[in-house]
Amino acid sequence: MERLIQDIRAFIVENFLFGDNSTPVAFSDDDSFQERGIVDSTGILELVCHLQERYAIAIADDELIPENLDSLSKVARFVERKRQPQPVVNHAR
């Protein structure tokens, strides 16, 4: 989990903060990306693309909610959850 958080932090810092993680833009694992202005209006799509590519997970539209994506720890938990083997659901046709 710690490693995952570090990886995602590196992506956030490079892509949204132009590689600057000094004060006043330093942020904790639980800081809200939106409240701190870290991820801007279009940034969330970049983050999602990165997560899908880097961790080979598929993210559905209805999962694009702040509860999953609005802080480092939330993103890490979300990615971990998605990487767990998903139960197979057979839909009746």
């Binding site: 132009f18 801007d40 209006s41 279009t42």
Partner: peptide, 26 residues
């Protein structure tokens, strides 16, 4: 400017991954 910041931004454009208004303005 900070050379590392510019280099990171250039890499992003090089890879075609710069999609935001902020990156464009930067």
């Amino acid at each position: 400017f900070r050379p590392a910041a510019v280099a990171a931004l250039v890499r992003k454009f090089d890879r075609g991954q710069a999609t935001s208004a902020k990156d464009d303005m930067a």
